[in-house]
Design a protein around this nucleic acid. Structure first.
Lengths: 228, 228
DNA sequence: TATAAATGTTAGACTAACCTAACAAATTTT
DNA sequence: AAAATTTGTTAGGTTAGTCTAACATTTATA
């Protein structure tokens, strides 16, 4: 498995986020990648050619890009490192939920297989990071549970929060203020037909939230799986 | 306090090692820095000018270089990070003594004051890394105990190993095979006048070691401080 | 002290990763 | 389907950090 530069790693990871992780599509355009990474399309274009030469992505002139098997393997490895470090920061160093991402962005580039496997062991092989995102195992396998957005949840159901789609500090702090955290149970009390505001109950406290906000809360729901 | 590039940090750290830490001199030449960092003198020359402009080093054409107060502060900070990470790897992740350095070389460049202060706390504010080298505190203060090389120790004295001067795997593994470790007591049994080989006793086991080897073992000795 | 050796500097070139400006292709809108 | 817009590419330039080769200065040695 080839070793990538810091920059190459960021491109591969970005492409992973835009394709495999986003769910709704399997390839990404040059401009899209550019705005995701905060780099100009012209620069991205250069890198796409380079990554194609290295057989890490599929790319044709004027076409969209996607990861090859090899590229995906490398990307999953970076994601694994990122999420293990986030878990470490949150659980062992008492970082708050909204602080872990920025530091993990740096730590994910440390090259040492032994380090990351030992870290995994030290953290007792966690299956999800503080945001609820799944952590790939050492073999690169990523177990994705059946998850949905809170906004699609039915009234009367109780679900469990497992993640978020928005990592901005503003969003995370807002969530925090509502008592929302990973593994927190949420009961849907009602939904207002006029403006779609949802009323939820968290730790006995009721709050009304916008669909825009609910959209970015990821949950799993046993009630939804029940046959009745 | 300015933020340095990865490369600039390595130069500042290298200069710190060659001057402040080496003990026997306070400035270093261009070729010396070059061979220490594994970079050609011509490249070092460029960087010295750059670091001088940033007021991190004192340097005049054809002269030797040394750190300014500002440069030293930054260097101590890097050393602090390096040694805290080594301690983490050794104590929490069960890395062996001779494996920690390489990974810490990468980790020392992570930029996050909060991270390093939390790590310090997590490790319970250690005063020395697995090699016995002192860890500067958060204020950048570095407490250096009275230490000497094992090669200068007197026959009959018992001393305590606190560090090494050679971080090569070969050296560290050799030390390990003799039972030598941080905080290990060492008794000097004899010294052969003909070839200067020292006979030492470690955990009841006697071995003869070369002055070349003993030179790189750092000890503290109470016997030496006694008046008699 | 004159010369040789070691040390340090300069000039010019290269690579990775970025940029801007201009152009080309594809897609969407009218 | 022609025009307008969006998207993608190319050419040429910049910066950081490296290199080699040639040159300059300082230090050591005969």
């Amino acid at each position: 498995m080839q070793v990538l530069s810091y920059t190459e790693e960021n491109y591969i990871k970005g492409l992973f986020q835009l394709t495999i992780e986003a769910g709704d599509k399997t390839e990404a355009g040059t401009n899209e990648i550019a705005s995701h990474l905060g780099i100009k399309p012209a620069s991205v274009n250069d890198m796409l050619k380079k990554l194609k030469d290295k057989k890490l992505i599929q790319y044709e002139k004027y076409g969209k890009s996607s990861l090859t098997k090899e590229g995906k393997k490398l990307a999953v490895d970076i994601v694994r490192k990122h999420r293990l470090w986030e878990t470490f920061l949150f659980e062992k160093l008492a970082f708050s939920w909204d602080e872990v991402h920025e530091v993990a962005e740096q730590l994910e580039h440390i090259q040492s297989k032994k380090l990351i496997d030992k870290l995994d062991q030290f953290l007792n092989y966690p299956s999800a990071d503080p945001h609820g995102d799944p952590i790939p195992n050492a073999k690169g396998e990523l177990v994705i549970e059946a998850r949905k957005s809170l906004v699609t949840e039915e009234v009367g159901h109780t679900c469990k929060m497992v993640g978020v789609k928005d990592n901005s500090a503003a969003f995370l702090q807002y969530a925090d203020s509502l008592g929302l955290a990973i593994n927190q149970r949420i009961k849907i009390k009602s939904r207002q037909a006029y403006d779609d505001l949802m009323e939820i109950e968290v730790k006995g406290v009721r709050n009304r939230i916008s669909p825009k906000f609910a959209e970015h809360i990821i949950v799993v729901c046993n009630d939804c799986n029940k046959q009745h």
